[in-house]
Design a protein around this nucleic acid. Structure first.
Lengths: 132, 132
DNA sequence: TAGAAAATGCAACGATGTTGCAAAATAAAA
DNA sequence: TTTTATTTTGCAACATCGTTGCATTTTCTA
């Protein structure tokens, strides 16, 4: 499916910036920060518009936000077949953030009276490449 | 153990602000944001000093930082007997953040070549009180 | 293709946290 | 205890990240 069709299938109108953003994200297997996206977009892009586009993509479930810590927030295109309810891996060496879609979310036992809706799991460690 | 002894046992010198901070945190079973701490400290405290004290406590392993999302970062006194390697619970109704020290951290299966050092798990849901 | 609706880009703002530095408080030594 | 050295504090200024208001431009719809 081409970018325009992809966007309209999510109810998002086609604009130059949104197609560029989609294109950048779809080329990556790793999650990107807004700063990294900004750098890939180059000079000719307004920061405000980028933030608005990212938020729109989030709201429309085109991407999901992965919060590693207060300094590290990354975005990843959602694979419609796999969703976004899986753990994420953060390499402390190269700072890559990857989805672990094949790993089921481990279950936690909650105290009496508590109920869980979603769960967020970040595994911190070193990736294949950084382990040589 | 009194506050002064507690601080010096962690190699932190005793000052008025640090004792107040320790006192506030030790009264809470829930984790507090820097804003919430600021409010409890009252008028007579400099923001900069508070941030520096929080960072110092983190560095000395007196407290740990729990990152829920980019807007919600909370701090909790570390119970030396229980450490800080357990899941956390975030109530989406009342916004409380609690430790789940009795719940072991669930294990994730990583792809070949990856190795895990630590893991961060936040369970999002509703707490006992908010479930009536 | 014309008009309505939505998106963009700019300037200004806001929240959160940091740095440099002089004054004050604490700890160590005499 | 008093003196001296080291830390900590509080202020002003700054940095980063993200948001809002609004006029202009672009996209969508009929």
């Amino acid at each position: 499916m081409n970018p325009s069709e992809y966007l309209s299938s999510y109810g998002v109108s086609r604009t130059a910036i949104r197609e560029k953003l989609l294109s950048i994200l779809s080329r990556e297997d790793q999650a990107l920060s807004s700063k990294e996206i900004e750098e890939k977009l180059g000079e000719d892009i307004d920061r405000v518009t980028l933030y608005r586009s990212i938020r729109l993509f989030e709201d429309k479930n085109i991407i999901h936000k992965i919060v590693i810590d207060d300094q590290t927030i990354k975005y990843k295109l959602i694979n419609p077949k796999k969703g976004s309810t899986h753990p994420h891996f953060h390499c402390v060496e190269c700072d890559k953030v990857l989805c672990l879609p094949e790993t089921p979310l481990p279950q936690c036992n909650l105290p009496e009276g508590f109920s869980a809706k979603t769960q967020n799991t970040i595994v911190e460690g070193t990736c294949q490449k950084c382990n040589h």
